[in-house]
Amino acid sequence: MLIRKAQPQDAGTIARFQQAMAWETENLQLDNTVLDQGVQAVFDDPSKGIYYVAEQEGNIVASLLTTFEWSDWRNGTVLWIQSVYVSREFRQQGVYSAMYSHIRRIVEQNDQLKGIRLYADKSNQTAQLVYQKAGMTADHYLLYEWLK
């Protein structure tokens, strides 16, 4: 399996993955136009984040997005992993673990990167187990949000 930075030509696949994830996790149908524009915005402005994909035999089987959080406490950047999706037929085969290991190596090799965070829906026990198996721990913070 190859883990690599996504390229603009991968945007359509990533958008389809995000549509599937929203439906699977929240029974939510996303607006395709808004979603396509949102994915493309990351490629147009790398300060928004970086997509990574997992390829097997030349086919993209998973994707995730890293975004940036400045930490004044650490005087550096914490990467947030977001928008994780693994194609159904490739789940429970170590795909996320491989992607997480790739991101972790990037953080370990860059003194300006201080760690990795992600959030998981409280009801998504499967995802929580995957993240724990990869060596991540639930933190002591609660995530609060207000969304328009």
Rank of each mutant, 00 (worst) to 15 (best):
S71G: 01
K122S: 13
F43V: 12
T33C: 11
A138K: 07
A127T: 04
V39Y: 05
A22T: 02
A98M: 10
Y119F: 07
Y96C: 01
N75M: 13
D121E: 11
A54Y: 06
V95T: 03
E69H: 12
E24R: 02
K148E: 07
A120Y: 04
G38L: 05
Q29P: 07
F90K: 14
T33E: 11
D111K: 13
S63W: 09
A20W: 09
E145M: 09
I50F: 14
G58V: 04
T33H: 07
G94Q: 02
A22S: 07
T67D: 02
N75R: 12
Y85F: 14
G12Y: 15
Y52W: 01
F90D: 15
E26S: 12
F68E: 06
Q18L: 15
W146A: 12
S83K: 10
R91D: 09
Q125F: 02
Y52H: 08
L28H: 09
N59Y: 05
T25N: 08
L147S: 13
V53C: 06
R104G: 11
S97M: 01
E89Q: 14
M99R: 03
V61K: 09
V53N: 05
Q9I: 08
Q125V: 12
Q18Y: 04
E69W: 07
I116R: 04
R4V: 14
Y51Q: 00
L129N: 15
V42L: 07
L147M: 05
Y52M: 02
N32P: 04
W146M: 14
G58H: 06
Q19F: 13
Q56D: 11
L30M: 12
Q18P: 01
D44Q: 08
L129Y: 13
I14K: 04
L79Q: 02
D31T: 15
A138T: 08
Q128D: 06
K122C: 13
T33F: 09
Q109G: 00
G38Q: 08
I103L: 07
I50K: 14
L142C: 15
I116S: 02
L35E: 00
T126W: 07
Q37P: 00
E24C: 04
M99C: 00
